[in-house]
């Protein structure tokens, strides 16, 4: 657990790592829209190629990349099963007397769904979690949502809360580990016994953890006040975000990609979603 920051930020040097985090959020949104634009074989093929390109450009090892897909494995299997067995169409593949009928359309639908989900997860992990630190992500969100300040939504405060929460996740997890070790050293046992016994075994961890979390919160609040923090009003930043030409190029490219998908959708080839 030691040394690993929250999220899965993977330090490397790639175009995405250098990009402005705001641009990356916009790109992620555009890419999500693109995945839903796809309707037929050609556009899905283009989507798959683009996802592979993203993986290559991000310079993140494939092993790590695949790790992000592990949690959605169940959803992928489940939706493809539903699509395969629940879609009715014109081309039946299994014999008449089989109880569960499989149609050609079902297989296509399942394939498309899987591609869509996988591309969705891959792209958001590449644009956001793997190449952007949580803190710069929160910062970017604050800047992107700053127009909402006009309608009295405390965007800065939300962003600050998010930043603090993210900042303290590794600290607290380290603390939890320390406390767990300390209690284990006194013979505490968290893994065996009835459900009730195990829940009770958590008390020696939770009590010290809460005590220290509250202490930390008070200390942090004092420290912030000592440095005259009084909310976002008139606050400037040390590292001001700057869009660069490459950010605009990337956004334009992705918009172009979306338009391209729209045209590809109009070509009739093999199969298209209803």
């Amino acid at each position: 657990m030691k040394g690993i920051s929250f999220g899965q930020y993977y330090p490397a040097s790639s175009v995405f790592h250098r990009m402005d985090p705001r641009a990356k959020i916009i790109l992620a949104v555009l890419y999500i829209v693109s995945t839903f634009l796809c309707k037929n074989v050609l556009s899905f093929a283009a989507l798959t190629i683009s996802a592979l390109l993203l993986v290559i450009l991000s310079r993140i090892p494939l092993r790590i990349m695949l790790r992000s897909l592990r949690p959605i494995l169940f959803i992928v299997v489940f939706t493809s099963a539903i699509n395969i067995f629940a879609t009715r169409g014109a081309h039946r593949l299994t014999p008449e007397h089989w109880w569960l009928a499989i149609y050609e359309e079902g297989l296509w639908n399942a394939l498309f769904m899987v591609l869509r989900i996988v591309c969705l997860i891959l792209s958001t992990s590449i644009f956001l979690t793997y190449t952007t630190t949580p803190v710069s992500l929160a910062n970017a969100l604050e800047r992107l949502l700053s127009p909402l300040k006009r309608i009295k939504i405390p965007v800065h405060d939300f962003a600050m809360m998010m930043t603090i929460a993210l900042r303290f996740i590794p600290t607290l997890s380290e603390e939890t580990e320390k406390i767990m070790n300390a209690q284990k050293a006194r013979g505490a046992n968290f893994t065996t016994g009835s459900l009730f016994a195990r829940a009770k075994a958590l008390i020696p961890i939770l009590v010290p953890l809460f005590v220290s979390a509250f202490n930390r919160a008070f200390e942090l609040a004092t420290a912030m006040e000592c440095r005259c923090y009084h909310g976002g009003e008139g606050r400037t930043q040390l590292n001001v975000l700057h869009y660069r030409a490459s950010d605009f190029v990337a956004i334009l490219l992705l918009v172009g990609f979306g338009v391209g998908l729209w045209f590809l959708n109009r070509v009739d080839f093999l199969y298209r979603l209803g």
């Binding site: 300390a182 013979g187 008390i203 005590v211």
Partner: peptide
Amino acid sequence: GLVMQYPEYQLFEETVYKDIAFGPAN
């Protein structure tokens, strides 16, 4: 017996007695 760094952070019981008794009870 391992006494960790800053062991006072591991205290959790309602009374000092119970806290010292945690190890022996285990």
